[in-house]
Simulated scan of single mutants.
Amino acid sequence: MTMFLFTGCVQTDLTVNKKQSSQNFWADLTNVDDVDMSDFDENLTESEMMLTEGDEANRMARIEFPVSEYSRLGRIGRGTIKGSIYIRDLYAQKVVGENTRLYLNPITSYSQQWYEESYLGGAKMEEADPRLFNYLQFTASDKNGKFAFYGVPSGSYYLIGTVKCGQECGYESMKNIRIATRVRVVGKQVVTQDLTKNLE
């Protein structure tokens, strides 16, 4: 048994069972050192415009972590989700998400709150419950923005990634542009889903 400690306003111990790694369990496919849980606390581009860093008083409260919802999620899978991550800049040119982190986050009431309030609404959220880590899958894109997730359990997910863009996107300095979309996989299905956004 391995113990991970996530730090923040409140310190919480999180246990991930590595005994079952040979069974291809969801959490075993993700290296905790590669996951930045702050990726699930805010919508980077919009929130940078709305709030100053450290403005804790204006962070939106999260709903209680729904343990029963997460306990019903599939933990073993054979599905594949692959595609490319990129944005179209102000000149309709493609800017790829080169060597960037991407996540699959199962759709639950907890992740739906993040999607609606933070991703769509631009609000900064309180820190994500560290138990969320057990249900995320992580990958990274290559230099051309191509990515793939393997061993995905059947279900619906938010596919989340970030593209860096600067002056070509109308910013004075380099910004992280968050992109999220819904994706569903069933059984051994291979789903092709690009993660993309047009800047206006």
Rank of each mutant, 00 (worst) to 15 (best):
Ile107Arg: 08
Ala148Ile: 12
Thr80Gly: 02
Leu120Ser: 09
Tyr157His: 01
Asp89His: 06
Val96Glu: 03
Leu14Ile: 09
Asp36Asn: 14
Asp36Tyr: 04
Phe25Gly: 06
Asn99Tyr: 14
Glu69Asn: 05
Phe138Tyr: 11
Thr45Gln: 15
Phe25Ser: 08
Arg62Pro: 07
Lys188Gly: 12
Glu64Asp: 14
Pro153Asp: 02
Leu199Tyr: 08
Val163Ser: 00
Gln11Thr: 14
Thr100Gln: 09
Leu159Trp: 06
Ala148Gly: 07
Val32Arg: 10
Leu104Ile: 02
Lys146Val: 03
Glu98His: 13
Tyr158Cys: 05
Ser173His: 13
Thr30His: 05
Ser68Pro: 07
Asn58Ile: 08
Ser22Asp: 13
Tyr91Ala: 15
Met125Glu: 08
Phe4Lys: 03
Met174Asn: 11
Val35Arg: 00
Phe4Ser: 07
Gly97Ala: 02
Glu200Tyr: 15
Ser47Ile: 03
Val35Ile: 07
Gly145Ala: 03
Val10Gly: 03
Gly166Tyr: 02
Arg182Leu: 13
Asp129Cys: 03
Ala140Asp: 10
Tyr158Val: 04
Val32Glu: 07
Gly74Thr: 02
Tyr70Trp: 13
Val190Glu: 14
Asp13Met: 13
Leu5Gln: 15
Asp89Asn: 12
Tyr158Glu: 05
Tyr150Trp: 10
Tyr86Gln: 00
Gly151Asn: 06
Phe40Trp: 03
Glu46Leu: 15
Tyr110Arg: 06
Gly77Lys: 03
Pro66Asn: 04
Gly170Thr: 05
Tyr158Ser: 11
Ala92Thr: 14
Thr196Ala: 15
Ile179Ala: 05
Arg101Leu: 03
Lys143His: 11
Trp26Ser: 14
Gln113Trp: 04
Val67Gln: 07
Ala180Phe: 04
Gly8Leu: 00
Tyr110Leu: 01
Thr12Glu: 06
